[in-house]
Design a protein around this nucleic acid. Structure first.
Length: 767
DNA sequence: GAGTTTGAAACT
DNA sequence: CAGTTTCAAACTC
């Protein structure tokens, strides 16, 4: 305790200089003290050899033990932006680099010094941290970011914008490696210190403040890691932390998000959509107002803030989609500014984005609901699955209309959307890799959709548009006229979500205002059929991962089976088909031609659909391709997508997504979800969609990402998972895939049960 | 956008 | 459990 206090005091009292002296001295001094070293440095600014050498050496070594911290999706996000810059520095040979040189170098003298110092600190921190990575990581990142930003931000700003997802994704790896190179960076920095010593008038204050800002902007995960950091050793670190805390105070949602690992619907609700905006604005202000005195610096920061803001926004978006939606609704779209980035096209892309909505009087996005269910719907099917139903929106980042994803950004909006999508994807990927959990929250993604919807005029139109965009699924919307949205006819109700503004229902009682009624009705229905709100589609077990992937649709099954007579189970009238699963013995369908698998077991293969099936498999396999590891990842990914919607990955609906709970109603001719198991998700886009896929199934409502072995549990348990009857609606709801739910990387052993049971979110908060 | 088809949900 | 009705989504024009 004592030490801590002291340190804190130091934070306040120490000047940058002092910090430097105290902390940096040791490690750096050894280099600086070397006459030879100095001499060499003075001779030439180029010191690539050393760096390279180190890199080669360290890289492999560090690679092996990648700290979990690195896996953080957020980190990845940062890395994205960072990577490019970094790259430049490390690779002088590149044309970009050389071109920048002239202008950059000059700047560098000023910025470099800062960077060097940071690096130095990093050095100190790393060793000092018993847990090293945790403590050192943050600072390291910061330093890197800072350096990159400073060095190349101006020159590269445009280029970065040009970066598309494909570019970013690959970079992630680099970034990770780079982080691992801590030593390299440090050395590099050190070597450069002397060179720029003269210019060493570093503005630590600004640096620190800037750093803080950057950190604040960083993803929650980073924040979390910071907070978790056990190593109090550095004042620098502490200062950053403090800054972050301040930030948190400004926007509790962010911290909560980070800490919790998942967004809390209620909390979100309590956080007005404005909150986000204000937060951004504030952070921006902070940055701008920070000790940056140099106008040029300000400009740089503005860029940075823009970049980071975008990233952060993205993060927030995930968690706050619901809020945002609400906000928009409340403001009746007056806040166009809030979502300026999205245009129609963007939205389509955003399918990837999770979401859901809620409303107060009319249709509101249930905070909880939206996130959970939608999340389910969200992404790719499970959205990361999110509930398809709810999340389907999954939409994944990769939505059906993936076109946008791949399309070159021509405008800021597009750029933003792409970035967002990329981020989502990245996040999902990262999550999967690091945690093995589903990632996105479809709901969140849906949120975007919802927003858009809100802006549209009539519910129907909105709906159609959304559907066309492929997002419709993300958020459930109904059109009930006689059921009052209190029967299972109502998709919203069935999905366990409140109706929202986009709904075109009449006399709707499925609103927070009628919470009692809704709950009572639900109970009644459940009493009649305990599984009424359970996910309709049950995912197959993980035991056969490969099979899952390649034949996910087939492996999953509809809970009750369909009863189709005329549609041949080839249209969405068929719940099995809609859910993207094959028919099973439970089905009483006639003339089953379900492309996902026939009732008779002929399945797709060997039958008329064989070809189709094959294609499907191929496509899926291509994506998954492979090895067990991949399988895991994919499955996770899918889940995240489905559940997602989103990003929050988890139960549903990546999903999402995935990137998604909701039902993903696939656009009529939209691409087929890749599969997922659990829920459908739109997924594939990121990987490329297959032309063959049938319209995406609505992966249902609840995402079920239940493994076969679990099925019994789920079905048998007198009460549906999570207990439909459970007391707390929130609990009932499938939450967006949250990392908390799944265990990292243990796909094989873990059982995912989508609690899809939609429980109505706690109505209390919703109001 | 209106009308039709379809099959799940609800009811008897 | 079977038959019928109701309902809203899916689909067609």
């Amino acid at each position: 305790m004592r030490e801590e206090s002291s340190e804190e005091e130091m934070d306040v009292m120490d000047t940058p200089e002092r910090v430097k002296n105290n902390q940096i001295t040791a490690s750096v001094s050894k280099f600086e003290d070397s006459p030879v070293f100095n001499f060499l440095n003075s001779l030439s600014p180029i010191q690539p050899v050393k760096s390279i050498h180190i890199t080669q050496t360290i890289n492999p070594l560090s690679f092996a033990s990648l700290p979990s911290v690195f896996t953080s999706p957020h980190v990845g996000s940062l890395r994205e932006s960072r990577i490019p810059r970094r790259h430049q520095l490390s690779d002088p040979s590149k044309p970009e680099f050389s071109s920048d040189n002239g202008s950059v170098i000059v700047d560098r003298n000023k910025g470099k010094m800062d960077t060097n110092k940071l690096d130095e600190q990093e050095e100190n921190l790393d060793p000092g941290a018993s847990n090293g990575q945790v403590a050192g990581e943050p600072s390291c990142e910061f330093a890197e970011n800072f350096q990159y930003d400073r060095d190349s931000l101006k020159a590269k700003h445009v280029e970065e914008h040009a970066c598309n997802s494909s570019t970013l994704v690959p970079l992630v790896e680099k970034t990770s490696l780079r982080q691992l190179y801590g030593g390299e960076v440090n050395l590099e920095a050190v070597s450069q210190i002397d060179q720029h010593k003269e210019a060493a008038s570093c503005d630590w204050e600004s640096l620190i403040s800037d750093t803080s800002d950057l950190l604040n902007l960083e993803s929650p995960n980073n924040t979390e890691s910071f907070e978790k950091s056990v190593d109090p050793a550095t004042t620098f670190y502490r200062s950053i932390k403090n800054a972050m805390q301040n930030m948190h105070s400004i926007c509790p949602v962010v911290s909560g998000e980070q800490v919790g690992g998942r967004s809390e619907p209620e909390n979100l609700l309590t956080q007005p959509g404005e909150g986000r905006e204000s937060m951004d604005a504030e952070s921006h202000d902070i940055i701008a107002g920070s000790s940056i005195t140099d106008p040029s610096e300000k400009m740089e920061y503005e860029h940075l803030s823009g970049l980071y803001r975008g990233m952060r926004r993205r993060c927030l978006v995930f968690e706050m989609a619901g809020v945002r939606s609400k906000h928009l609704e409340e403001n009746s779209g007056s806040d166009s500014s809030v979502l300026p980035q999205f245009d129609g096209n963007t939205t389509a892309n955003l399918q990837l984005v999770p979401t859901k909505r809620g409303n107060d009087s009319s249709c509101r996005v249930l905070p909880g609901i939206g996130l959970h269910l939608n999340a389910l719907a969200a992404t790719p099917k499970d959205y990361k699955i999110v509930n398809h139903e709810a999340s389907a929106s999954g939409r994944l980042l990769i939505g059906p209309s993936s076109s946008s994803n791949f399309h070159h950004p021509t405008s800021d909006q597009e750029l933003f959307s792409n970035i967002l999508a990329d981020n989502l994807m990245e996040r999902e990927i990262d999550t999967v890799e690091s945690v093995g959990l589903p990632v996105e929250d479809p709901c969140q993604k849906s949120g975007y959709m919802a927003n858009e919807e809100i802006n549209q005029c009539s519910p129907k139109k909105k709906r159609r548009r959304l559907e066309q965009g492929g997002e419709a699924e993300a958020c459930k919307r109904c059109n009930c006229k006689k059921s009052k949205c209190l029967k299972l006819y109502c998709e919203c109700f069935a999905a366990g979500v409140y109706c929202v503004e986009p709904c075109a229902c009449i006399d709707c009682f499925n609103k927070p205002v009628h919470e009692d009624t809704v709950l009572a009705t639900r109970k009644q229905i459940e009493s009649r059929n305990p599984l009424a709100f359970a996910p309709k589609v049950i995912r197959a077990s993980d035991s056969r991962p490969e099979e899952d992937f390649s034949k996910t649709p087939a492996s999953a099954r509809h809970k009750r089976g369909c009863n189709c007579k005329k549609s041949g189970c080839l249209k969405k009238y068929c719940e099995c088909y809609q859910g993207g699963v094959g028919c099973s013995i439970n089905c009483r369908c006639e003339g089953c031609k379900n492309a996902f698998g026939r009732k008779d077991g002929s399945g797709v293969l060997g039958t008329d659909h064989e070809l189709e099936e094959d294609e499907l498999d191929t496509t899926e396999r291509a994506v998954l391709d492979g090895d067990s590891q991949r399988t895991t990842t994919q499955s996770d990914f899918k889940q995240s997508m489905d559940s997602a919607p989103p990003a929050t990955p988890s139960r549903t609906g990546r999903q999402l997504v995935q990137p998604f709970s909701s039902k993903r109603k696939p656009p009529r001719s939209s691409s087929f979800p890749s599969i997922s198991s659990t829920s459908g998700f739109p997924a594939s886009q990121p990987f490329g969609k297959s032309s063959f896929f049938p319209p995406p199934p609505k992966f249902d409502k609840h995402f079920d990402c239940v493994m076969e072995d679990e099925v019994p549990e789920f079905l048998q348990g007198g009460s549906p998972v999570g207990g439909i009857k459970s007391s707390s609606p929130n609990q009932k709801r499938v939450s967006p895939p949250q990392r908390m739910e799944t265990s990292p990387g243990l796909r094989s052993s873990r059982k995912l049960i989508l609690r899809s049971i939609p429980s109505f979110p706690s109505l209390t908060t919703n109001q």
